[in-house]
Amino acid sequence: ALPPFDATRLRPEHLERDADGDVVFTPGPSTTNLNGTTHGAVLSGLAAAAQAAYPGAADARPLSTTVEFLRPVQITDWLRARTVAIRDGRRFRTLGTELVLPDGRTAVRAVGTALRR
């Protein structure tokens, strides 16, 4: 039996960062899907959490997130989440996040829009 997934691992305050300030995450065996790779919901949650951890994101309420799954992610892969501001307006903020595999290829691309408070 697989261990249950601990959703608190995806809270912005629990995310680990590397020396460059990027979020890093290793999925682990509790995130597996029927194909033996990391479940898409976990990857979407990681992208959303990385956007919530972006500097200044605490003053915005998420409205929508679009996720593209480009490659499977093995449960042992170390992922790096790179988040950049696409649009940072007075009322809306749009952030782009890429989950990058150890070999440098992008596995997941997410775009999230939030309303500033």
Rank of each mutant, 00 (worst) to 15 (best):
V67A: 12
L15S: 10
T113H: 04
T83S: 02
G21D: 01
Q74E: 13
A60D: 03
L99G: 04
D59N: 15
R87C: 10
A41I: 12
T8W: 12
G40S: 13
T94G: 00
D6P: 04
P12G: 04
P27N: 04
A53E: 08
A52G: 00
S30H: 12
I75M: 15
A1Q: 01
R11Y: 12
T66V: 14
P62S: 07
D77T: 00
G40M: 09
R80K: 09
A53K: 09
A81G: 00
V84E: 11
H39S: 10
R61W: 05
F5W: 03
G89Q: 11
T76S: 14
E13N: 10
L15E: 05
F69R: 14
R87H: 11
V84D: 06
V67E: 13
R91C: 01
Q51L: 11
T76D: 15
Q74V: 09
P72D: 10
P12H: 02
T32K: 15
A41E: 12
A114Q: 05
D77F: 14
D59I: 02
R71C: 14
A60Y: 03
A60W: 03
L70H: 08
L15C: 13
G89T: 10
A50N: 10
V100F: 09
L2H: 14
S64I: 09
L115G: 02
R91A: 05
S44A: 15
G89V: 08
L63S: 06
R116A: 06
E13R: 15
R80A: 10
L101G: 06
P12M: 06
W78G: 10
T76K: 11
V23W: 05
F5R: 02
A85Y: 01
T94M: 02
R91H: 05
G21I: 05
R82V: 07
A114G: 09
P72W: 10
G21E: 02
A81N: 04
F25G: 00
P29I: 14
T38H: 12
G45F: 07
L34Y: 15
E68M: 12
E16Q: 14
I75N: 11
R93L: 06
G28H: 15
I75K: 12
R80T: 13
P12D: 11
D22W: 05
W78V: 09
G45W: 12
V108Y: 04
T8E: 12
V73A: 04
L99F: 00
R91K: 09
N33E: 12
T94S: 00
V84Q: 07
